[in-house]
């Protein structure tokens, strides 16, 4: 079952440019779904459409098996969200900000202290939210999203502006929520490295088009498919010629002969042939493309 499912979701702010183009998002229940894309790719617009903040133009959106037309309030009651920058009342304290939402959700008052403890903001006292650091504001926003124990958490770039320590803290918090409370989490980011350690599924968007969607394992498979093998020899050009006989297309990069990944048996045959041809082979190396470069390749 999917917590979020969109079908051909399309949106444009002007006639010529589709900001979101026929997106079929599928967020499995219980997953941590990383929604990746460079700045301006259409991530925020997609998330705003999902939350009903922008009027839908084309396509369908189903959240927790229901559409907004069927049960808007029921859906919103089950979602916690943070879109773009933190939404806080600067003249109020952390507790007062949470109290505003507690009134609406009618959740127990004790929950305010609980979520403040979760995000480590228990000692802010009478300090106004407007005086908080960006990291504290982000954490308070997450506390606000968690207040009513949502089944689905939608966080748009929640680690923006956080220091490495803050990023790790948020990551650990989200993993804990997902594992212990089975909260489905959608987290958007423009940096794969920032979220690859926590996500179970990934969707990559660029220029409004969903380029990849699947589990982290599927992305890793893609990673091995795009890996290459490097031969370090004393005569790269002659090496290239020998490889060509096996219909292998190789290129010379920094004095190394680089070719797409091949199986181990063929590597040993090639090695033998190179040695027999009088070439000194001093290095054979498998080069794995990191996920970041796959991401960059996809969004190029």
């Amino acid at each position: 079952m999917y917590s979020i499912e969109t079908n051909e979701l399309t949106h444009s702010f002007s006639e010529n440019e589709k900001v979101v183009n026929a997106i079929n998002l599928q967020v499995p229940s219980g997953s941590i779904y990383g929604f990746l894309g460079p700045n301006g790719a259409g991530k925020t617009t997609t998330l705003r459409l999902i939350l009903g903040l922008i009027k839908k133009q084309k396509g369908t959106i189903s959240i927790l098996g229901k559409t907004f037309e069927e049960d808007r309030l029921g859906i919103l009651n089950a979602i916690g969200s943070m879109i773009e920058s933190p939404s806080l009342y600067g003249h109020l304290t952390a507790k007062e900000n949470l109290r505003i939402l507690q009134k609406i959700y009618q959740c127990p008052k004790g929950r305010i202290d609980e979520v403040l403890e979760i995000v480590d903001l228990t000692n802010t006292g009478k300090k106004k939210a407007g005086k908080f650091s960006l990291g504290m504001k982000q954490r308070l926003s997450i506390a606000m999203a968690l207040l009513h124990n949502p089944q689905l958490l939608i966080l748009d770039e929640p680690t923006n502006g956080l220091d490495p320590n803050g990023i790790i803290e948020i990551r650990e918090l989200l993993i804990k929520l997902n594992r212990e409370q089975n909260v489905t989490i959608v987290i958007s980011s423009h940096l794969l490295s920032e979220i690859e350690k926590m996500v179970t599924h990934i969707g990559i968007i660029n220029k409004g088009v969903l380029l990849f969607q699947g589990s982290l394992e599927e992305l890793h498979q893609k990673q091995s498919l795009t890996s290459s093998i490097k031969f370090g020899t004393n005569d790269p050009e002659k090496t290239k010629e020998i490889l060509k006989k096996h219909e292998l297309i190789a290129v010379v990069e920094n004095n190394f002969v680089v070719l797409p990944i091949i199986d181990n048996h063929l590597i040993s045959i090639l090695n033998k042939e190179l040695v027999d041809a009088g070439i000194e082979v001093y290095r054979i190396e498998v080069v794995k493309n990191d996920l970041e470069s796959i991401f960059m390749d996809l969004v190029k």
Binding site: L76, I83, S87
Partner: peptide
């Protein structure tokens, strides 16, 4: 204008209120 000033319209409109 408090909602615009604090960037909280989006927060308010995603709470379960009509």
């Amino acid at each position: 204008q408090m909602e615009y000033k604090n960037n909280t319209w989006k927060q308010l409109c995603t709470t379960p209120q009509s």
